[in-house]
């Protein structure tokens, strides 16, 4: 049963990403990504990480991609121009990317070689434990992250806050 869900979700995700690559309209691309991230959220759930799944859907799919859509609308990007003759870079990059894929798979297999075996009960389900971890081992990171968000806020305002001509 889990395999079926996994299969559907992954096809959805990959298909959405491919769609984002193929489409020429940026708005469509952004929407495709929303779909992809949502599917990814589901996959996170399959990995016994409900908190991460929730965060993914809420923040990534919900906030970040919306932000992108706002930007697209602001720039009024219409269609991307049809592919010009010079596609050398893209082809080259794709070839290299395939090589990278092979390498990554190889690396992954090596990494997994020393597995104690998938634990039946992952500690991810225990949200309380997660919370405790957050406030003990990862306290510094947590606090600094909040500072980071503040900085990002202020930065964005400072950078793009002013209108032209002022």
């Amino acid at each position: 049963m889990a395999w079926v869900i996994f299969f559907i979700l992954s096809v959805l995700c990959i298909g959405a990403v491919v769609g984002m690559i193929v489409t020429r309209k940026p708005a469509h691309g952004a929407l495709f990504l929303v779909l992809a991230f949502a599917a990814l959220g589901g996959i996170f759930g399959l990995l016994d990480a409900p908190f991460a799944a929730a965060a993914q859907v809420l923040v990534y799919a919900g906030a970040i991609m919306v932000l992108f859509l706002f930007a697209i609308m602001m720039f009024n990007l219409r269609e991307d121009e049809p592919p010009s003759g010079k596609r050398l870079r893209a082809v080259l990059a794709s070839a290299l990317a395939v090589i990278l894929l092979a390498e990554l798979i190889l690396a992954g297999r090596r990494a997994l070689a020393g597995f104690p075996g998938d634990s039946a009960l992952s500690s991810g389900r225990d949200i309380a434990r997660l919370g405790r971890l957050l406030f003990s081992d990862y306290l510094y990171a947590f606090e600094i992250t909040s500072l980071l968000i503040l900085a990002a806020l202020v930065g964005a305002l400072a950078l793009a806050g002013r209108k032209e001509g002022e």
Binding site: A93, L96, A97, I99, L100, E103, L104, A107
Partner: peptide
């Protein structure tokens, strides 16, 4: 970057 990453990983 990509090329470097591939080489490094390799």
């Amino acid at each position: 970057f990509l090329l470097a990453a591939i080489l490094f990983l390799g």
